[in-house]
Design a protein around this nucleic acid. Structure first.
Lengths: 237, 237
DNA sequence: TTGGCAAAAATAATCGTTTTTTATTTGACG
DNA sequence: CGTCAAATAAAAAACGATTATTTTTGCCAA
C-alpha cells in the first residue's frame, strides 16, 4: 500500500522556497497526526517511516523531534516517539486554555486596530460566509476542507494585530490540538452545527469595536464547539 | 579553553536514571543558554559543540532541536540554529503572558487544595525564607544559586494542584525565559530587591485560602520583578 | 578605488551503518 | 503447569562520513 515516495519527485508546495527535507517530512507527519492517519497513542516507527519517506534515520528523527515543539508527539526514554493521546480531559483543558488565551490575544489585537486589518477581516469574513452558505444551505460537503482553511483564516485575522508573540504562539499550538479533536470527533460529516450566527456575532462586534462583546462571543464560540462535539461523539471508539 | 569532555566520564546526575546522550547534551546547552554562556542571538555551531561534547552530528542536532520546544533556540532554513534573542519588548510580553497564565494556574491549583499540598507549601516557604534571610540580612551572595532553586520550588508548589497540563506547560516555558532575563539583568549581584514581603503575602493568602488575594499578590510579584529589573539595567550592554 | 564574479572555505543538512538498549520468545527447572 | 532466565529479535540511539548550501575571500575589470 505504501510505496516509497522520494522527496525530489512531488514538489506540490509554493514555488519559491525549497524546503529542507526535515521540514517537508515534519509537515507530512504533522498532517498525519492531525488527520488521524497516525492514531492517538500510536508509536512512530522511525525505521518504517524513514523507508516510506526515503530519508535517513537522523533526518526522520529530527523531523519527528520537531513535532515535540507543539506537543503533537511525545518521547520517552529509550522507547521512541508516540503520537500524543486524545482524551476528554485533555480536550476540556485545551478548551479552557484557549478561551483564556484567545480572549486576551483578541483584546490586544482589537485595541490595535488598523484600516488594513479591517479590510482583511471583512474579506476573510465574506469568504467564510460564502463557504458556510454552501456547506449548510446547499449541503455540499465537498467544501469541508475549504471551510477549515477559511475558518482558520478568519480567526487568525481577528488576532492578527496582537503583538504578543507568546500569546500567538500558545494560541497556535492550542488551535492545532483543538483542530485534531474536531477531525477525530466530526469524522467525515460536514459542520457539526450552524456556526454562522456565532461568526456573525464575532464579526459584527469586532467591526463595531466592542471589545468585550467580541471577547464574550469568541469565548462562547470556543465553548460551544467543545460542548457540541463532546455531546454527540465519543473518544473511545 | 574548552577541552573535550566525553559523556562517559562525569556522571554528576542522580544515580538511578541513565540518561540518553541527547538529553544530557540538551540540558547542558539549555543551561548555557539560560546562564548566558551562549549569548542571545549567537549561533550554535553544531560541529564545534559536537566536538566539545564528544558526540556525533546527529546527536548534537537532535539535542539542539529539542530546545526549539521551549523557544530557547530558533532555527532558520539552511543557516542553522541560533540562541533566541533578548529584547525589552519580549520581556514585557513574557511578563504579561506570565501574569495571566500563572494567575489562572494558581486559581485552579488553590481551588484543588489538599493536606499534602499545604504541608508541601509550608515546607517550601520555610526553606525559601531561610535562604532569603541569609541572602539579604546577612549578605551572603553564595546562596544565590540556592535561592533560584528554592524560589522556583516555592512557586512550583503553589500551582502544583493545577490539573490543566497546558497551563502548566506554558507556565514552565515562560518561567524559563523570565529566568533567563533575570540572569542577564541581575549579573552577579544577589537579590534585586527585598522580595520577602511579597513572598510572605503570597504565602499567607494561599494558606488562608483567599484565592483572589493570592492571585493579585502573584501578579504584583511578577510585574514588580519586571519593573525592578528593567529600571536599573539595560539589555543592549 | 570599488563593484561584481568566481574560486575556496566554512558550515549546514543528509546519509547509511554500527552500537546499545529494550521487548519477546523459548526452554529448563521447580 | 507456572515462573524465571537465557537466547533471540526488534527497535532506538549514536556514530562519523558525504553532499549541498551559504559565506568568505581574492581577483580582475570598470
Amino acid at each position: 500500500m505504501n510505496e516509497p515516495h522520494p522527496l525530489a519527485s512531488g514538489d506540490k508546495s509554493q514555488g519559491t522556497s525549497k524546503k529542507t527535507a526535515i521540514e517537508t517530512v515534519q509537515e507530512q507527519i504533522r498532517e498525519r497526526v492531525i488527520s488521524g492517519a497516525l492514531g492517538p497513542g500510536e508509536r512512530l516507527h522511525v525505521d518504517k517511516l524513514r523507508l516510506e519517506f526515503g530519508v535517513s534515520t537522523s533526518t526522520m528523527r529530527e523531523a519527528i523531534s520537531r513535532l515535540l515543539i507543539d506537543g503533537l508527539v511525545t518521547s520517552e526514554q529509550q522507547r521512541g516517539f508516540r503520537v500524543a493521546p486524545l482524551t476528554l480531559k485533555d480536550f476540556r483543558d485545551i478548551t479552557d486554555a484557549r478561551k483564556m488565551i484567545e480572549a486576551q490575544a483578541l483584546r490586544i489585537s482589537l485595541s490595535n486596530r488598523s484600516d488594513v486589518w479591517e479590510a482583511d477581516l471583512v474579506a476573510a469574513y465574506h469568504r467564510l460566509s460564502r463557504i458556510e452558505e454552501r456547506l449548510i444551505g446547499e449541503g455540499k460537503p465537498e467544501f469541508a476542507h475549504d471551510w477549515d482553511t477559511w475558518n482558520s483564516n478568519f480567526h487568525d485575522c481577528l488576532v492578527q494585530n496582537c503583538d504578543n508573540a507568546w500569546l500567538k504562539r500558545f494560541r497556535r499550538t492550542l488551535h492545532q490540538h483543538s483542530y485534531r479533536y474536531h477531525r477525530r470527533l466530526i469524522g467525515d460529516r460536514s459542520l457539526p452545527r450552524d456556526v454562522r450566527i456565532e461568526h456573525k456575532a464575532i464579526f459584527d462586534t469586532a467591526i463595531a469595536g466592542d471589545i468585550e462583546a467580541c471577547v464574550a462571543a469568541i469565548e462562547a464560540h470556543i465553548e460551544k464547539s467543545y460542548t457540541d462535539l463532546t455531546q454527540q461523539h465519543d473518544l473511545s471508539e
